[in-house]
């Protein structure tokens, strides 16, 4: 059974008002329906502005959809409030594009990783500390103790993104949205982060929505891929189908703009 099902999802943003005449709107996500299976890495690819991030935010209830529904484990999450919303938050997490921006500059590594535990009242005292260290070790930041009191500006980009991943996984979620998690990182450390995410998926039985505009990365990471264009999904299939045998002209155009599709191979 699918972990996530979206039906006719739409998100319309009001943008600036015109001087004469009415309000203008942008349809960021337009009539999108898909399923994400358990333990699957589901890729969302498309050019900038195609609605990928908006789609991810909708799935995590960071935005309210204009219309349509989202089922998580059979429950329509667009109607959750209060305590139910909080326990939903415990099961889903997000890894952001820019690790320089997604960690609060005034939080130490410990503060950042412990925050979800504190909010969810999952563990306190020694237990909390133990869980934080365990999460840091899981993302291969060792020795973890020596990092606890560091601030983000004292860490490298790769270390920061690992801290962000540790923070996302410390509550042991089932579902993670990764929004271009390596695009801001140096090319030399990308493969390390991607492999880490695949290993964590296996170890923790994660389901993932993986957003990227880089088809090489999508091919490496994903089981199935959906191609977004102007808010709509124009093609959806297994990565082999989408990349070896694209049906939609937009997918072909996207593929032809990627010269080095075979340069990233599994290690």
């Amino acid at each position: 059974m699918a972990l996530i099902t979206t039906e006719n999802l739409r998100k319309v943003f009001p943008v600036r008002k015109r001087l004469f005449g009415g309000q203008e709107y942008v349809t960021a996500v337009d009539d999108v329906s898909f399923k994400i299976h358990r333990r699957e890495v589901f890729g969302l690819v498309g050019e900038s502005g195609s609605g990928k991030t908006t789609c991810g935010r909708l799935l995590l209830r960071l935005l309210e959809p204009t219309s349509g529904s989202i089922y998580y484990d059979g429950v329509d999450i667009t109607k959750l409030t209060g305590r139910e919303l909080l326990s939903f938050r415990r099961r889903v997490q997000m890894i952001f594009q820019n690790p320089y921006e997604s960690l609060n500059p005034r939080f130490t590594v410990y503060d950042s990783v412990a925050e979800p535990l504190i909010i969810q009242r999952i563990a306190d005292g020694e237990e909390r500390r133990r869980r934080v260290i365990e999460a840091l070790e899981r993302v291969r930041l060792t020795p973890a103790e020596s990092l606890l009191r560091r601030y983000p500006h004292e860490l490298s980009g790769g270390q920061r993104q690992r801290v962000a991943i540790a923070r996302a996984l410390v509550t042991e979620p089932d579902f993670v949205v990764a929004d271009e998690p390596v695009s801001m990182l140096d090319v030399s450390i990308r493969a390390g982060i991607l492999n880490l995410m695949l290993d964590l998926r296996d170890d923790l039985d994660l389901t993932m929505l993986f957003i990227t505009h880089d088809l090489a990365v999508a091919r490496y990471m994903c089981d199935r891929i959906a191609v977004m264009h102007k808010g709509r999904i124009v093609e959806l299939g297994s990565k082999e189908d989408v990349i070896e045998n694209p049906q939609h002209p937009y997918t072909r155009a996207l593929l032809s703009s990627v010269p080095r599709l075979h340069s990233l191979s599994k290690t």
């Binding site: 938050r89 820019n98 921006e101 997604s102 909010i119």
Partner: peptide, 13 residues
């Protein structure tokens, strides 16, 4: 508007 605020919301804040 900084992403760490959204990250806090994801954590349930």
């Amino acid at each position: 508007e900084r992403p760490f605020v959204e990250a806090a919301r994801v954590a349930g804040a």
